[in-house]
Amino acid sequence: MTDMDEADTDAEQAVIARYRLADDGFGGQDQRATVRQAESLLTEAIEQADVGEFDGHEFGGGEVVLYAYGPEADALFAVMEPVLHGLPFRPAHVVLRYGSVDDPSASEHRIDL
């Protein structure tokens, strides 16, 4: 294996899910509780499948963004998809990023939920 091959297999890909909340701030208390429950399910599913790690969330500006990282975005999304579809907030979408955040040639694929 060359150094380039090793770099390719070590590249961190991402699944980034965005959900619109009820207000322009941080959402309601019930929405934040729903997200925390989903985080527990996502963390468990990702760890059991050994496809990466759930990295957390950001609330603000009327939305919540969930972050997960692993070596293969498609495999990561396949494990996360049932939980992500189960969240009731809409509009919502997921971005699969194929490559690290600092890679200018990384490609992205958007999926509406």
Rank of each mutant, 00 (worst) to 15 (best):
V65K: 10
E72D: 15
V79M: 01
L87D: 01
L76Q: 09
L87W: 06
P91A: 12
A73C: 09
A75M: 09
L87K: 00
A73D: 08
A68I: 08
F77G: 00
G62L: 13
A78T: 14
R90E: 12
P82H: 05
E63C: 11
P91V: 07
E81L: 03
G86L: 00
F89N: 04
D74L: 12
V65F: 02
A75D: 15
P91I: 07
P91N: 12
L66T: 01
A78V: 08
P82W: 06
E81T: 01
G70D: 07
D74H: 11
G62D: 12
E58Q: 14
R90H: 12
D74W: 04
F77Q: 03
A73I: 06
V65T: 14
G62M: 13
F59A: 10
P82C: 03
L66S: 06
Y67C: 00
A75N: 14
R90L: 07
H57E: 14
E81P: 00
E81A: 14
E63P: 00
F77Y: 15
L76A: 07
P71G: 13
L76G: 09
A78F: 03
L84S: 07
V79S: 07
V65G: 03
Y69H: 14
V83Y: 02
E72G: 09
G60L: 11
L87E: 02
Y69R: 15
G60S: 12
F89E: 05
E63G: 14
L84Y: 00
L76R: 10
R90N: 06
L66Q: 06
F59D: 08
E81H: 07
G70E: 09
A78L: 03
H85Q: 14
V79R: 00
P82L: 02
V79H: 00
V83W: 01
V64Q: 09
V83K: 03
G61W: 08
G62W: 13
Y69G: 04
G61M: 11
A75V: 01
F77C: 04
G86T: 06
A78N: 08
A73E: 10
A78E: 15
L76D: 10
F59Y: 15
Y69D: 02
A78G: 07
A75S: 15
F77V: 07
V79K: 00
E72V: 12
Y67Q: 02
A78W: 06
G60A: 11
P82E: 05
Y67H: 13
G86P: 03
E81M: 02
A78D: 14
V64W: 10
Y67I: 04
Y69T: 11
P71K: 12
G61F: 12
F77R: 09
V65I: 14
A68V: 04
M80C: 13
H57K: 11
V83P: 01
E63T: 12
P91K: 12
P88D: 05
E58K: 11
L66C: 05
G60N: 11
G60R: 13
V65E: 06
V64K: 06
F89G: 01
A68M: 13
L87S: 06
G70H: 08
H57W: 07
R90S: 08
Y69E: 09
E81I: 05
H85G: 04
H57M: 07
P91F: 10
G86M: 05
V65Q: 10
E81D: 10
R90I: 03
Y67P: 00
F77L: 15
Y67N: 06
P91H: 11
L66F: 07
G61I: 10
Y69M: 05
M80Q: 15
Y69P: 00
G62E: 12
A68L: 09
F89H: 09
